[in-house]
Design a protein around this nucleic acid. Structure first.
Lengths: 194, 194, 194, 194
DNA sequence: CATGAATGAGTTTTCATTCAT
DNA sequence: CATGAATGAAAACTCATTCAT
């Protein structure tokens, strides 16, 4: 087993533990045990628990961004771009439910709070992803396709429902299939389109 | 200082601490200290921390419901009812940002999870509030005013964005005024209307 | 309800609670509750918990002594006196199992330990009861009826088995009836008689 | 200092504290302090206080059994076997007074009570030791050497006095020497023999 | 006298982190 | 580099006792 194996084992176990049981119930010792490394070893790869948690957040964010940018319909109409982003995000989280649970936990915790504060003060880790949506919205507004609302409001109108629907899906309230995803995408488009 | 003073002092401090720092960083000892009571005193009013947390949730929920039902346009068109509920929720949370943060924390925690499971098995704490929205949606669907989507999806489309917008407001990304609230209400209506 | 009612209510509840659950699980607040008095009221009758516990011990000891001295065969043969004492103790505890459990708890606790220390240093609360047995033994030894063993050894030979048998009875290992009591009395007599 | 040193330090301190002051006055923090380890260290060796207490009970029981079985007069007359068991138990406790006090505390506590319940339902921790005595008694009864009394009564007649005598010895009421032990053994034999 | 709310020291237990091997 | 035993600061909670009413 080489160095990077251990690192990713630790990250994977952290993901599973935190997604399933929350930050408050994911002791370092258990992460170590399930990752088959000694407790102290984690600290060779991650300075402390906070950094481990933030690093995992970053990695998931990266994969998310990658999923969105893959096959991105560059130059295509705004609505198509929106559908692409919306659909890919949706599919990514349905395929990776642990990632969804982790992000949920993360954003609703001091970690997420401080991340938001960072965003406020300009250094957004996910600047890029936001940017993708932001470009779509900027273009849509300038072409009078979208409602002239503040960027963050458009963003909330477009993404907010999806996150709740996915949560309901993971809880078994509703079953998301491609057809339903499409109809929800359309509904969200209705919300933001002029 | 009479009995109920201490009880509400404890609840108020709990609200502040948890809203600002999360469940895992709101020790009973600090709640006691900030409420100017001894550690043991909390336990005269609340059997344990869980019960304190759930009780606070219940009280906020009650106030929320009260706000929504106040001046409710009974018998009026579905859209008007929707606007009322949406607007009141929005105003309540803007007036009581700590309540918003608390509810956010609560729903994203084992407490909230179990509450959701309760909902699944039929015994919804906020039966009434949910019912209000559900009645609106039921009527809207049957009158072919709303899209024929699962209830939980309509709910997410209608409420999801608001919660994100309020979050952005509390973080200073956007300033919500009456005019903006109205326009967001309309956008959400666009999302759910047929 | 007059003063002495409250006092004996408190003692009775203390007896029940401690006999059934032990000293460590008999909070003053629960004693107060079950005795239908306020927590502070107990302290009007008993300076503190230790004194309450010791007082209860003393009262049970008094009743025990009374039972033994009742119909005591004064002037009769040593064996008859022994049988009387042995039988009465046995019957008392079988009739008052809570008293037995309480005494058991008491003697196996710091309270009992300190009582024993007191006894060592001469101030025996139960001097009288010991004396009864001691007189029997003294007479028996001088008349060459009993083995010439130290007083405390004779005492242990005579009483020790009974206490264990009663314990076994309360636990359901054995059922003590008059016939069995008689045979055990005889066996104990065999142990001490020359 | 190696691993097993710490473990036995903890057990030794626990023995001393509980034997001298009882379960309710032997805080983990003090055990830790007197054993020169940190509070948390105890929990590496013993899952919790209950397990520590039960483990100590088991270890003492094992040593006791070992003492009894050492040089056991297999095949010899019942009386000789009885004398052996009685004498060894006596000597063990006189050599290890803290073990005696600990066992006393243990059997008179919820721990001991549950142990007794186990015995009732067949799974006796000290099956072996009990068995040794039981075999002696069984043989003695069938050969018409012992009184035909229930097993638990014979047991109490044989062992009960010894425990009280040892208690008196630890308290200084009586000094047990080999001669006295022999005479008490004989007295107990008189109690059970036909 | 009686009340019972309030106190706060004390208890068990957890867990992120360190460091000698 | 890896280990995992050890640490000790904190957390939730209990309960004998007090004292203002």
């Amino acid at each position: 087993m080489n160095k990077s194996d251990k690192r990713s084992d630790i990250l994977q176990v952290t993901l599973e533990l935190i997604a399933e049981r929350g930050f408050h119930d994911a002791p370092m010792s258990e992460i170590a045990g399930k990752a088959h490394v000694a407790a102290g070893t984690i600290y060779r790869y991650f300075e402390n628990k906070d950094i481990l948690i933030n690093e995992l957040f970053r990695e998931i964010g990266d994969k998310l961004l990658e999923a969105i940018l893959n096959n991105y319909p560059e130059g295509k109409p705004v609505q198509e771009q929106f559908s692409h982003v919306f659909g890919e995000l949706c599919r990514y989280f349905l395929t990776n439910p642990l990632h969804f649970r982790y992000m949920e936990q993360f954003f609703n915790s001091p970690y997420g709070i401080s991340k938001r504060r960072d965003k406020l003060s300009g250094k957004n880790i996910h600047q890029d992803k936001r940017d993708t949506l932001q470009e779509i919205f900027d273009e849509g507004i300038s072409k009078l396709i979208l409602k002239d609302l503040p960027m963050s409001v458009l963003s909330s109108l477009a993404i907010g429902p999806m996150l709740y629907v996915i949560r309901d899906h993971t809880l078994g309230f509703v079953v998301l299939d491609e057809s339903l995803i499409r109809r929800i995408t359309e509904a969200c488009w209705d919300a933001i389109k002029r």
